[in-house]
Design a protein around this nucleic acid. Structure first.
Lengths: 147, 147
DNA sequence: TGTATACTCTACTATGTTAATAGAGATTAT
DNA sequence: ATAATCTCTATTAACATAGTAGAGTATACA
């Protein structure tokens, strides 16, 4: 698995919105971009994408902004990563019609990539944004000089 | 982690040479390319690379070819993958000076990427080409119509 | 000693992806 | 009305990947 900036930004943005969940504040693209140091126009695209994915909702106009459309508890890292990046398998092969997988020698590797994908999935599917929100709130409460 | 064709070919090539280990045959680039269905000139580059990495040695001239310079047992998948692909961490961040890692919120993700990298490493560092050679020889003995 | 064979090395190219930028359009609170 | 904000499509610069090209070097063997 490899994480692109697009995914990195998406995850941080959802965490940010997760920290606001429950309050009825809806941070704007501009605010999020500034706070997380993400190019604003790029974030704009990412948020539209996340909206289409059903992760966030938006309000337009004067008091517009973004907010989560699911509880942080219901959003796992895996869901977001797969939505942005596509499948997490290390090679195209892990699927169906990969030319190299006809003979035994290639299957030896195929099995390994599957094990890798499964172990990654086990981690990222086991973490929700509620977990992350708690971690951040816990740590920010302790170290008093954080954002 | 993501596997490029370059790595895919490198691994299959080393497995192929592993199957010849002990015999004093040295398959040529041409033979390997044909058998594994790899573009010959591309494989040429990869083999030179693997040579510089200390995985294979070569003999030039009439009876030239390639052979492993280490025992299959001493070559792990992890060594080869890292040599070709570079570090397996999912983001540039897992290292030292990633701008996003100054605050707690980013570190939350950083820890996760490290867990993913570690679980991947655990798998690929635990498999040697001896293991793979045995698997292939075992299976090829059973199903009689394989290559 | 010539020659065929096979490895060695450097440079180039086509294609695709990523990260970002640009700008016009649509909605909404006041 | 209008200012603020989200929405949408197109474009671009930089980079990585996969592959191609061709000239050069070493070696076995007749």
């Amino acid at each position: 698995m490899r994480i692109t900036y697009r995914t990195d930004y998406a995850l941080k943005t959802i965490l940010e919105l997760g920290l606001h969940f429950g309050q009825d504040s809806a941070p704007t693209i501009h605010e999020i971009a500034e706070r997380l140091d993400i190019p604003e126009k790029f974030l704009e695209q990412i948020l539209l994408d996340l909206k289409r994915g059903g992760f966030v909702e938006s309000r337009r106009g004067k008091i517009g902004g973004y907010f989560l459309s699911q509880k942080p508890r219901e959003i796992t890292l895996g869901k977001v990563i797969r939505f942005i990046e596509g499948p997490i398998e290390p090679v195209a092969c892990v699927g169906h019609n990969y030319k190299g997988c006809q003979d035994i020698r290639s299957c030896v590797f195929r099995n390994i990539w599957q094990r890798v994908a499964e172990s990654t999935a086990k981690i990222i599917d086991g973490i929700t944004f509620e977990d992350l929100v708690k971690q951040v709130k816990g740590k920010e409460a302790v170290s008093s000089y954080s954002i």
